[in-house]
């Protein structure tokens, strides 16, 4: 039977035209449900940044002068740590994809007509939400512990979370795809470690770029973490910036949306269960 003959026998009867993002909401809620429904999981995720800032942030005597930092190292570090929890939360989001793959859930989802792009973006955006929730908790705890928001304005806060959201978007998209392409969780863990720590250290999260050796300065200026921190410190602490806040946001938007588009593109041809 020729293809056209088969087609005539079955016109599109019974197969309604579906919107391009049908099923996205169901997928998105599914990823979030796993997170908020497990109180231990949620709590540990929220405690983690508190432990970070409590232990590391407070282990530096506030009298230690760091070149290029005005207004105390704790405030400098606390803001840098916001992007730091976003980094780890986004990167580890890839594990959810690998688990779904190993348990056969991804395969079951892939045989439905929900679009590949919706699948990738549901994991990615759920991860952005989780990352931002951690960022909010971290910032609140930092304020309790002594962070002084010298340049605080509501607009500045909005700019900060926009910057962190765009950072989370790019990193989550990257590691969602990494999870989809990984054959096993150990492969993905190796990739995570390979990427996450250099991204943290080769940025201005812990130290200002000016205080670094020349070549690391070069690397850190290619690192999206640097621009998230740059925007946040300007907006919250009134620190001098590497570039202006709108430029920071533009760079981060290019990073976030660029990797999202790339992840959708890759998912269309590469996803197999």
């Amino acid at each position: 039977m020729s293809e056209s003959a088969t087609r005539r026998a079955y016109p599109t009867h019974g197969t309604p035209t579906l919107g391009p993002i049908h099923g996205f909401a169901a997928m998105f809620m599914r990823q979030l449900r796993a997170w908020y429904r497990d109180p231990v999981f949620l709590l540990l995720g929220l405690i983690q940044p508190v432990v970070w800032i409590g232990l590391y942030g407070k282990s530096f005597p506030s009298s230690v002068a760091i070149p290029g930092v005005s207004g105390g190292y704790f405030s400098f570090l606390a803001v840098g740590m916001v992007s730091f929890v976003v980094l780890f939360s986004s990167v580890f989001g890839g594990m959810a994809v690998v688990f779904d793959k190993q348990l056969g859930h991804l395969k079951r989802i892939l045989v439905t007509s929900v679009s590949r792009g919706s699948i990738v973006m549901s994991y990615t955006l759920a991860n952005v939400v989780k990352s931002l929730a951690q960022a909010v908790v971290l910032l609140a705890v930092a304020v309790v512990l002594g962070l002084t928001l010298t340049g605080f304005t509501p607009l500045g806060l909005a700019a900060t979370f926009t910057a962190e959201a765009l950072l989370a978007l790019g990193l989550s998209a990257l590691f969602t795809v990494a999870g989809l392409l990984s054959k096993s969780s150990s492969v993905l863990l190796a990739v995570m470690n390979f990427v996450a720590l250099p991204l943290m250290f080769a940025s201005n999260s812990l130290f200002p770029v000016d205080a670094m050796p020349g070549w690391i300065q070069g690397v850190s200026k290619l690192n999206p973490m640097t621009y998230a921190n740059d925007a946040a410190r300007q907006a919250l602490l009134g620190s001098p910036g590497i570039v202006s806040v709108p430029v920071d946001l533009a760079i981060l938007a290019a990073f976030g949306f660029g990797l999202s588009l790339l992840s959708i593109f890759v998912s269309r041809r590469q996803i197999t269960a």
Binding site: P16, G23, A26, M27, R37, G104, R108, T112, S113, V114
Partner: peptide, 27 residues
């Protein structure tokens, strides 16, 4: 429709909610 070897229903949801989830995915 596909029924795979593994059970993929979410154990924390009800049977009805699981059915609804796949209905949403299928539009």
């Amino acid at each position: 429709g596909v029924v795979l070897q593994d059970n993929t229903a979410d154990p924390q949801m009800t049977g009805y909610e699981n059915l609804l989830f796949f209905a949403d995915l299928q539009g």
